[in-house]
Amino acid sequence: MGRTLQFEIFRYNPMDPNSKPRMQTYYLEEKENMTLFLALNEIRETLDPSLQFDFVCRAAVCGSCAMVINGRPGLACKTKTKDLPDKITLHPLPVFKLIGDLSVDTGIWFRGVAKKIEAWVHTNKTFDPNALEERMDNELANQIFELDRCIECGCCIAACGTARMREDFLGAATINRIARFYIDPRDERSDQEYYEVIGTDEGVFGCMGLLGCEDVCPRNIPLLDQIGIIRRKMAIASTGGKVGRLFSVFAKKKK
């Protein structure tokens, strides 16, 4: 304890014609168990009330507070200052539209891609309030939950070289979301239908395997493993199933 932390924070208010993008320095005494959530709020309350940033749950479950912390995208709320050097540099996430300072518009971005991939259960059935629920193996429910754990914080998108170069790339979180519906038997879409939403260079074939996504994911989701699975499935679908049958036999053997 007793360290004085030097914060270098990106500042820019697009709504203010006099504002220019710049870095601003703040100094703060470090306290026990300090996180970036506590530090940034202290800066706002005592040093600079105009500082914009987003926190909601402050418990690493809502995905609001992703920012670039000393070069790496991460959740500010669960970043402890004791794990950081004396100088802490904070930038807003790239790729997403800047609202101001450290605040970016991840919500609109994620809704946009969710619409593109139609991220909901597609079914022709109608709900019968008097019937028992359809049975499901608990193991499968757990698998779906594993993929559903993504909190759409945007770290994987900001850490992705492809996403930074190509605006229309769907990104790891989106492909993971597709994987979630893909393994869910309630979603009746066929491989071909999935192919049409994601079998493109903006989709799964755009991924170049840079692994940035997986290495920064605050939920520790094996994103590239999922992309790999979807890539194989979609590649199989692209051949109309001919080459694929051979391939899937091989893939199964591997398992």
């Binding site: 909901w120 259960v121 059935k125 709900f127 629920e133 359809e134 049975r135 499901m136 193996d137 608990n138 429910a141 757990n142 779906i144 939950f145 559903d148 519906f181 869910d184 309630r186 979603d187």
Partner: peptide, 9 residues
Amino acid sequence: AFWGVPWNR
């Protein structure tokens, strides 16, 4: 459950 919630079973 019908809409997609992966309830534990």
